[in-house]
Design a protein around this nucleic acid. Sequence first.
RNA 1: GGCGGGUUGGCGGAGAGGUUACGCAGCGGAUUGCAAAUCCGUGAAGACCGGUUCGAUUCCGGUACCCGCCUCCA
Length: 475
Amino acid sequence: MVEIKLTNTRTRSKERFAPIDPQDVRMYLCGPTVYDRAHLGNARPVVVFDVLYRLLRHVYGEDRVTYVRNFTDVDDKINASALARQQAGDPRPLEELIRERTEETIGWYHADMDALGALRPDHEPRATDYIPQMISMIEALIAKGHAYAAEGHVLFDVRSFPAYGRLSGRSVDDMIAGARVEVAPFKRDPMDFVLWKPSSDEEPGWESPWGRGRPGWHIECSAMSAALLGESFDIHGGGIDLQFPHHENEIAQSCCAHPHEDFARVWLHNEMLQVEGKKMSKSLGNFFTVRDLLDQGIPGEVIRYVFLMTHYRKPMDWTAEKVAEATKTLDTLYEVVGETSPDRSQAPNPEVVAALADDLNSSAALHALIRQAGAIRPGDTAAAAGLKRSAGLLGLLPMTGGEWRRLKSGGIDLSGLGARLQELRIAAKASKDFSAVDALKSALLAAGVEVRMTAAGVDLAPGAGFDAEAVEALK
RNA sequence: GGCGGGUUGGCGGAGAGGUUACGCAGCGGAUUGCAAAUCCGUGAAGACCGGUUCGAUUCCGGUACCCGCCUCCA
C-alpha cells in the first residue's frame, strides 16, 4: 500500500494519511457559488483535488473513494443578479430567474471543469436541497447553547467554542481588534456569525422556526458534508482564502453540533493564483474565466498542465510563457503516446505515484513523467501505453496524439498540404530548384505549423502560434 | 496592527545536511538541399546578514522585498 502524506493545515505539518475507513475514503471540497462563470482561480482547487481524487482511487480502489463538491445556489450575489434582470424588464418572478441563473451557471461550470479534465465528483449537492438539514443543525446548535436567535437572525456564539480560531491561528480577541466591519447590534460578540437570516418578500426564503428566511454562508457545507459523508470524514479542502472565516466557521458549527465526532481530519488548502505576478482582479484588468482561455484556443489540458507545474501550497503565477511551455511539453508527450490506449493492466510509473503521494508534488510527478517519456524508443507501444497509464493519474493525455493535433489545429486537416509539400520536394530534388518548396515551407512555418521532413516523407503538425486562418489561406 | 505564504541558474520549478533535479531557452555536435522536428553533449543557482555543523541552498535566528487573508473572492 502506497503511503500518502498530506500537509494538514490544522496541524501545520505533513502527516501520513490514514483513512477512517479504507473501504470508503471520504473527501469534501468547497465548490462554487453559482452566480457567474468560473474564473481561473476557481479552477485551481478543482484540479488539485482532482489529482488527489485520482491518487486515492488508485491507492484505495476506484469505488472506495467518495468525493463531494457542493454548489452553493443560495447567496445574495445570485439574488442581486436575478433582481437586476427583473429590474431590466424581465417579467418573470424572481424565483424563476434565480433558478434559471443557477441552472445555467452549473451547466457552464460542468462544461468548463470537464474541459480541464476534472472527473465529476461522486456527489454535487445543491444547498437548496439541504435546507431542512441546515435548519435541524441550527436547532441543535441552539439547543446545545452554541447559537441564539435575535431579530429574525440566528447567530453562532463564537465564545461558546473555545477552539474558535485554531484552524487559522487567530484569537477572537485579536480579530476583534482588527475588525473593520460594523457590528450588528444584536450580536453578543462582534465575531458571531450568521447561521440564518430573514428574507424579504423579494428574496428567496424558506419557512423556519425563526420565520421565513435563508441560511448564512457557512452552514450549507456543514449540513451537506454531514449528510453525504458523515459527521467525521477524512479530507476537507479549498483555497487558502477560505481558511478564515469559512472553514473556521464550518468547524465551529460541525464540532458543536456533533461534539463526539472529529468533523474533517485533514484540512488541505491550496495557495492563491496570480496572473503575471499580480493578483487577478477586475480592476487590474487581468481577470479572466476558464471559458475565456478555452475560447482563445488554449486547450483545457494546457491549463491543467500549467496548474500542475506548481505545487498546490505555493502561489501559482499564470503567464503566457508557461502556457507556451506546457503546450510544447504536451506536444512532446503526445508524440510519444501516438495512437495507443492506456494499459490498465500496467502499474503506473512508481516515481509518479511516489511524487504524488508525497503531498501531491505534481511538479515532481510531471518531471517523472517526462523522464519516462524520454526513455521510450519510437514504436514501443507497450511503453507508450504505460506512459498513458501513468499520465492518467495526473489527468493528462486522455486523448490520442492524432486527437491532440486535431484539437490544436481547430479541426483543420493538414494532410493535403503535407502531400503537396512532399510533391514539390520530390520535384525539387530532381530539378535542384528548391524555391517553390522553400516558399511553401516558410509560409507554413509562419502560420505556426511544424514542418518535419524526413527520408520517409513530410509530416505537418500544429505548433506554437498555430494560425488557422493563415493555414486555410494556403490550401 | 494580527495571521499566513514566498524569495533557487536567462525563465519555470522540485527534492535532499555532503553525491546530475528536471523542463524551456542558450551554446556545441549529429542529421538536413537549407531548415524545422529529433538525437547526443554542455555552461549556469540558491535574496541578504549571522548562528549551529567537519560541511548548509537545505536546520536555527534576524533583515529586506513581494504576495495573500483578516470584508459571504478558490
